[in-house]
Design a protein around this nucleic acid. Structure first.
Lengths: 225, 225
DNA sequence: AAGAAGCGATACGGATCGTAGCGAAGAGAT
DNA sequence: ATCTCTTCGCTACGATCCGTATCGCTTCTT
């Protein structure tokens, strides 16, 4: 249902060494990986809602206490998987053209959110944030802020190119670009289809760009077809 | 923490008749209200996460079974409160100016989401949607679609005024306008401050409007200050 | 007054939670 | 090979909440 994607490994160990018997990866690191893998599998089946510490323990062949020695509960466990995924996501490459970079950036997010565990896990964690400040802090610093920082780099590149006007509020730009994506994921349930990124960027770009023909004269507005 | 707002009543019975002894409101309707009121109070304290059917029953002075005879669980109970709030929200009035209407429309949402139970309840329900199709359907038809329909009216008004170009994709416009708001509520945790609506509308408006001076020549772009 | 509907109370079995205590097994050092 | 420290498995709890079944009383309706 959530097929593994090229951007990160959903299966066993993506490291180059397939099975270095024992001492290379310490004992602790090995059980870590077994637990996280079981967590991924259960998350793929039923999302965060169906995730239980006892279920993970059973699936991983591990004692429940072993899990509680590492994480505070199922939310942190899911977050650990999410962070692991986020850190494997590739950065936005320099394409020479700022608009193309923006589309590519948003589109990558649309794809990863709509077709991997990431979307499902985020969906399941959102409700836990207000009641768990530590979880919320970790989630925001290690997941949300990641994309924000990446966008900042992209914007600075576009500004130095002369494509984007200086002094852009990156936070607002981030919300404008990704708000619609998460709106679909979390609220409306509308499909995260292929054209979404282009349409969002087309709509927002005039507010970011220095004035130019592609903005004021073009037809990149919100319409059908 | 979540003060009652003018747009809907957080307290007992907002109906004109304060206390018509018994037969006016049927027995069933009365216990309904007692339960919903207890639900509101508990939601205000700890959100959906801290809401339990047993807690509501105790607070309402009602048997647990009585609640299960009406709703399927705590999620539906919270949704009932949410729907009740949504239906009391006033519609977007005709202000003569489309941009002003948009700002007013988004700003009303920002206020209600940031300072009433509505935001907190939505935050708590989001994670339950993927695992409960019936709940998701009700949530989308009776909460999400509500704003969408209202925006449609607003857009049609603006189009017939000549402010907005014809053929606007209302769904995308809705996502562009409210995506950033929910992004703050659900993900980033950034404050839902007063200027947000204006800045979002200013950024998106060029994509909606017929070409004109306020779009191509103005300074309504994304910047600081 | 009589039937119907609504409600309270109690009692369950079940799933998870999160913690405690103890003994066994792995891993590195001498 | 033995010793020592870390890590882990196992079992056993008390606790909360779930959702359901049953039964008898109270309140409406006619």
């Amino acid at each position: 249902m959530y097929p593994s994607s090229p951007t990160y490994g959903d299966d066993a160990e993506p490291d180059p060494d397939p099975l270095e018997p024992s001492p290379a990866r310490s004992r602790r690191a090995r059980t870590d990986e077994v637990i996280l893998q079981a967590t991924r599998e259960l998350l793929a089946q039923g999302g965060v809602g169906a995730l239980t510490v006892e279920g993970v323990a059973a699936r991983a062949g591990v004692a429940k206490t072993t899990i509680y020695r590492r994480w505070r509960g199922r939310e942190e466990l899911a977050l650990a998987v999410l962070i692991d995924m986020v850190e494997r996501v590739v950065v936005a490459p320099d394409l020479g053209d700022t608009r193309k970079e923006l589309v590519s950036f948003v589109d990558a997010a649309v794809k990863v959110i709509g077709s991997t565990l990431m979307g499902r896990v985020m969906q399941g964690l959102v409700s836990e944030l207000p009641g768990d400040p530590a979880l919320a802090r970790a989630f925001r610093e290690r997941v949300v802020a990641k994309r924000h920082a990446e966008l900042r780099r992209l914007v600075e590149r576009g500004t130095s190119r002369g494509d984007l006007r200086p002094g852009i509020d990156v936070e607002l730009a981030n919300e404008l670009l990704f708000g619609p994506v998460y709106y679909r994921l979390l609220l409306s349930g509308a499909p995260l289809d292929a054209g979404l990124a282009t349409r969002v960027v087309d709509a927002v770009y005039p507010a970011l760009a220095t004035r130019g023909p592609s903005v004021t004269a073009g037809d990149d507005r919100i319409g059908r077809g």
